[in-house]
Write a protein that binds this DNA or RNA. Structure first.
Lengths: 187, 187
DNA sequence: GTCTATAGGACGATAGAC
DNA sequence: GTCTATCGTCCTATAGAC
């Protein structure tokens, strides 16, 4: 679904990919396709929520950390042949104006990432409001750079975002603490 | 198409919206739906290419200019009820891995915006490479913030992006020249 | 609970009268 | 060039045998 979009993937595809026949899907997800998509978004959200904090955990300087996030993203993207890096973004763009129930699911995922990231940065010693702005801007810049990189098939957008965002944070220290266990785990 | 996605809009919808019957569409666009989408992307790209430069043209300080872009975007978005601000982004996300021909069309649009924006900033006195990084990062940050804002139905992502990007550019002067006539006009 | 068969309708595309 | 009628295929969802 991250590759073909919500409207672009059929129940037949889901059945084929999961190995189960269509009837079984409707037995477990009585609400049909929307329910499956909702679950998929929830799962993807939980799985990816810790990704940014995990990368940043290796750094003690905020500038290097931010640069590291985009460098890592660029590397991964090139290694995977510019596949879709974020399992939520393309669906979010598609359903925001059309399937209100799924829009809410994507909102919950993003809210979870923002709250989790903010809590992580606060735990690392940053001010509340600063941590939240940074998290929101970081996720936004990443999603936008992913979009451009996939369309252009170049890592330039990711590298440019890193070069643009990182320098101003050089010299801001990140306190050395380990990942809090609950960060971003739930939406 | 910006609202419902490429797969989500049918030829019937296009015919209805345009007033012409389906047969006429296939007469003018022999390649069918893909050709129509390609043209729509080209048009949207040309129409929106001058948008950022137009906003920035009112400023002489780069920091205020960048802040102004995001503030303006936030205002527009709230005023339109969080409708899709960019007619290319959602389609780009959808077709990047699926319809190669349309991926190339979105690439051409983005390339045009990047080249046009870079040329604009250079005309305003910025260094080549700096201008290009700034343009790419700006477009990326905008697209990402649009995505988050539509999902969350909040202007926070746009405002946070502005607060995060703008301050480092305060004090950098933009030379006072008018818009070059060719900027971003063609892909 | 699992799975097959199929309903009912929308899809992109075409044929061909005007 | 314009438009209508329709093709064949695919869709989501369901019914019902096992």
């Amino acid at each position: 679904m991250r590759h073909r979009g919500y409207a672009g993937v059929g129940m037949k595809d889901i059945a084929e990919a999961s190995g189960a026949p269509i009837g079984s899907l409707y037995h477990h997800f009585r609400a049909g396709k929307v329910a499956i998509a909702r679950e998929a978004l929830r799962n993807a959200g939980a799985a990816y929520g810790l990704l940014i904090p995990t990368i940043i955990d290796a750094y003690t300087d905020l500038g290097e950390a931010v640069g590291g996030v985009f460098d890592q993203a660029a590397e991964d993207m090139e290694a995977t042949g510019f596949a879709n890096m974020c399992p939520v973004a393309s669906v979010a763009a598609e359903v925001a104006d059309t399937v209100e129930e799924l829009r809410q699911a994507t909102r919950d995922v993003f809210d979870g990432w923002i709250d989790g990231g903010t809590a992580y940065f606060v735990a690392r010693g940053l001010d509340d409001r600063f941590a939240r702005d940074l998290t929101v801007a970081l996720i936004g810049a990443l999603e936008g750079a992913f979009l451009l990189a996939r369309a252009l098939r170049t890592t330039e957008p990711l590298l440019a975002a890193g070069r643009t965002l990182a320098p101003q944070y050089r010299g801001i220290a990140l306190a050395r603490v380990s990942l809090p266990p609950t960060v971003g785990a739930e939406s």
